[in-house]
Design a binder for these strands. Structure first.
Lengths: 359, 359
DNA sequence: ACAGCGAAGTCATACGTATGACTGACGCCA
DNA sequence: TGGCGTCAGTCATACGTATGACTTCGCTGT
């Protein structure tokens, strides 16, 4: 014993219990085992290493303390977070709500979680841009599933402000072969069927309502439309670009209908735009489908709510999200997924009919 | 120098560069400084501790290596993840899409990220239940913002399967005073105005379309409706419960209209249900609003898309999410937020008119 | 009687960061 | 000349977990 007492024990000061969450060490102390054993038990890797009696003791101690493993520590140790970022243009569009649901379910099946974030591009146009494009930047991520955005701009964003320039990436509804694996709805086949349907009814003069968004899916719709008309003589198409709102679509539809020889069918690239077309048509005292046919795309809820019910192409939003997530998780597992195309389906309802005889 | 060479250097074996991401140690080595200095620079805490020359060197080294801090390690060290879980019934409902957007924006302003997960209760009813109710359970969280769910059941879920039984919690559209702080849309005032509007038009026989979901917001709507009618003699209400779909709402509306003295106004607790009512009314050859008035609630997109445009109560979904998130982050900062109520707004459109004279 | 083996655990360490405590060098003033 | 303050950094450690390497002990077979 030294003559002078030892300095004030720092452990004593540390002893004051803060209201902190219990750790595996606390559980170990209570169960009378080592921390390693607690970890083994919780990982379920105990057979052959821990006796059943001890397993029970650990489980009871855990329950008594209300122990939850610290996920941040696990993430660090395991080098993975089992978390994926989903980038979508806008969750207020129910189509992407369905994509998210599908993706979340597919993720849950393989024990992954999903963080959603709106694509910066859209966010900027719709309202004040976020302080940081990727607010999720400080979230620990394993991979990215991104929808409806040019690959180059997303890659650039990931590189500059994102969490990691080269996270595994799968694109939804983007150009195949351009870079990362893609999972798409087969909009081309749907648009082909739709156009053929209208041609079969006898339509020759078309008006197109096209959103002012330059993503692959809309380009693909346009191309498929052109291809379906190709070789059909006597057809004529006028196109109007519009913002992605009912109001502006109505304005654009009015412009189309003002022509000397107005179209007998309005082919809209989205159900929301078709709803705008309905408004314009009605404002002019015309009837759907007797005086003019209207078609949509996506088959959202509003397609069956407006009068008459809308002929449209149903896209498998839910499966799109699920398939995209599966592909992404395959990629994480080292399997390179193939570009995938999910079939859509032409849904013929009451908004399409033969053009009026005088047309 | 010892006569025998040193044992095979383990560092040599370790030297083989795996394709792993660069760490702050790598940056330090390249910049010729210690890891601590790198950390100081990135944290922006260098004034007075690091010279500008060194700061520049560190930044250049970081850029050269494409360094991104390991978030899992930060989370562990800092004891916080700046991540909040948002629990909503279904993102396919655009109302909750808007809530999410508002919440995300408010979170981003204070440098928080948002993870979304559908409330288990709804998820179970809508489709196959998830393997684990909280797939996000392995995500490191700081707090929870939950919508439209009884507090008790959520608390129970958090306790059994959730990440932590006592994470800071704020409830959206839930009963105030029941436990955690709440942020609500003032559905009572909106419903009061709406009912008063109908009474003022002369309506006395009402049909109610009520969803078969027992959350606070719908109970509150019902109570406010009752209260507004209270003391008005000669009124009569028949109520039909319905699933939250257009189709089932139409069925329920038919049941109401089958009565000997059918209602002259259908008061629906949601715009989606009102859309179903429209279908039933139209199927019977009745006109809105000449023969019967219909009202909705929420003011979703479909309210202005159906014909005639729907009289409804606009709820501030976006602000609800934003205010809820603000309250939650206040709570995290130690400030106990007050229960908050955000005003709605009666929007009178063309679906309401005086009852027919013979009515 | 003792080598050898399996069962039941424990030990030590690494993951990558942030930060309080410490150090060395220099300048300045008394 | 010595003491002190400031500047510019470095050192050491802790966060909580998972896991490969190691230890201890009781048996069993020969």
């Amino acid at each position: 014993m030294p003559p002078t007492g030892p300095p004030a024990d720092p452990a004593a000061a540390k002893h004051e219990r803060t209201a902190t969450r219990p750790t595996s060490k606390d559980v170990a102390k209570l169960a009378g085992v080592s921390q390693s054993t607690v970890s083994l038990v919780h990982a379920g890797k105990w057979p052959g290493r821990v006796s059943e009696r001890t397993v029970r003791a650990v489980n009871e101690a855990s329950a008594a303390l209300g122990y939850r493993p610290n996920q941040a520590a696990r993430h660090l140790r395991l080098g993975t977070t089992r978390t994926v970022l989903l980038v979508v243009p806008a969750l207020t569009n129910p189509f992407f709500g369905a994509v998210h649901t599908g993706a979340s379910e597919a993720a849950a099946l393989r024990d992954f979680a999903v963080v959603v974030f709106p694509s910066p591009v859209e966010a900027g146009t719709e309202r004040a841009p976020f302080a940081s494009p990727f607010a999720a930047a400080h979230t620990a991520l394993d991979a990215v599933l991104a929808s409806s955005m040019a690959y180059e701009s997303l890659a650039e964003l990931l590189a500059t402000t994102g969490p990691d320039p080269d996270l595994p990436l799968v694109m939804l509804d983007s150009e195949p072969g351009a870079g990362p694996p893609t999972v798409n709805a087969d909009v081309a086949a749907g648009m082909h069927d739709l156009t053929t349907h209208l041609l079969g009814l006898g339509h020759r003069r078309f008006g197109r309502l096209v959103p002012d968004i330059d993503t692959w899916t809309f380009t693909a719709r346009e191309n498929a439309y052109r291809a379906a008309l190709h070789g059909m003589p006597g057809t004529r198409t006028t196109t109007a670009r519009t913002a992605f709102t009912v109001h502006d679509a109505a304005r654009a539809a009015h412009a189309l209908l003002d022509a000397a020889h107005p179209p007998t069918a309005l082919v809209c690239d989205d159900d929301v735009l078709a709803a705008g077309a309905y408004k314009a048509v009605r404002a002019r005292g015309l009837r759907i489908p007797e005086d003019i046919s209207v078609t949509g795309f996506d088959d959202l809820l509003i397609a069956t709510v407006i009068e008459p019910e809308l002929t449209t192409v149903r896209l498998p939003a839910h499966r799109l999200g699920a398939a995209g997530m599966s592909a992404l998780l395959d990629l994480l597992d080292g399997r390179r997924p193939q570009d995938t195309s999910l079939p859509g389906e032409l849904v013929i309802r009451r908004s399409t009919a033969p053009p009026p005889p005088t047309g």
